[in-house]
Amino acid sequence: MCIILTFRFEQLKDKIVCYVKSINLCGRRDIVNLCHNQTEKIDVLFWKNIREDYNGLCQMCSTTNDLLGDMILLSYTCNIIFILVQLFVSLRDRDGTVETIYFFSSFGFVVARTVIVSIYGGWLNETAKSALPTLNAVPTEIYNPEIACLINQIHTSSPTMTGHDFFSITKGLILSIAATIITYELALIQFNQVALKKFSSNNDTVCY
């Protein structure tokens, strides 16, 4: 669903870019003449339809977020806990090739899944804002209240997926997760020195 919404925002941005480019191809005199005839109403109608389409996509994102918010929160929580446990267990020696393969494959799978979900979620947020540079470069002669409303809406209500409103999925979330994992991993190491010594002395096999 996130990919579909991102694709629709991309189509909307391409439509805006094509329209503005077609206007910029005209000379300044042609733009002024355009704004003084019947075509001005068509221009305002175009931007009104664009704004309504953007608003509809934002509502779809909000509805999807309401349905998937709890699942996103649970998924990120389980992934972070699994990564923390796997990193903590990795500090001991591993017996056999099978255990080593299992550790790296399971750990790599969870990390890749978390990163991919964050990238796609951030892609939605970035694409929804991607039309802003084009809108800010609209010629003054065709600037109208509908464009101003659209710019304000993109600034104030940019759609994004959240974990039940505890966090928003953006590209910067990956760095935040990495910093959180490092912090808690250091805390686990400090408070579990006895367990680490037991692992190193007995070479116990623990699978998670």
Score class of each variant (00 low, 15 high):
S130L: 08
C207R: 12
F82S: 08
D30R: 05
W47H: 05
T77H: 02
N203S: 13
G27K: 07
Y143Q: 12
A131D: 02
L12H: 06
L175C: 08
E185Y: 15
L84V: 07
Y54L: 05
P139M: 03
S157C: 11
Q86K: 03
Q59D: 11
V20C: 05
D66I: 01
A137E: 14
T63H: 06
R8Q: 15
W47G: 01
C18M: 11
E52L: 13
A187Q: 12
A148I: 04
E10I: 01
D66G: 02
C58W: 12
A179S: 14
Y120H: 01
L150K: 04
I154D: 04
F199L: 15
A131H: 01
S201H: 14
I174M: 10
S75P: 00
V20R: 07
T183F: 09
T100K: 15
L186K: 12
I169P: 01
L132W: 08
M71E: 06
I3P: 00
S158C: 15
T77V: 03
L68P: 09
N136P: 00
T162V: 02
C35G: 04
T183E: 00
F9H: 03
L74I: 10
L25D: 08
T134D: 11
V194W: 07
N152E: 13
D66T: 05
Y19M: 09
Q153N: 09
I119Q: 02
I81D: 00
G27S: 15
Q153C: 02
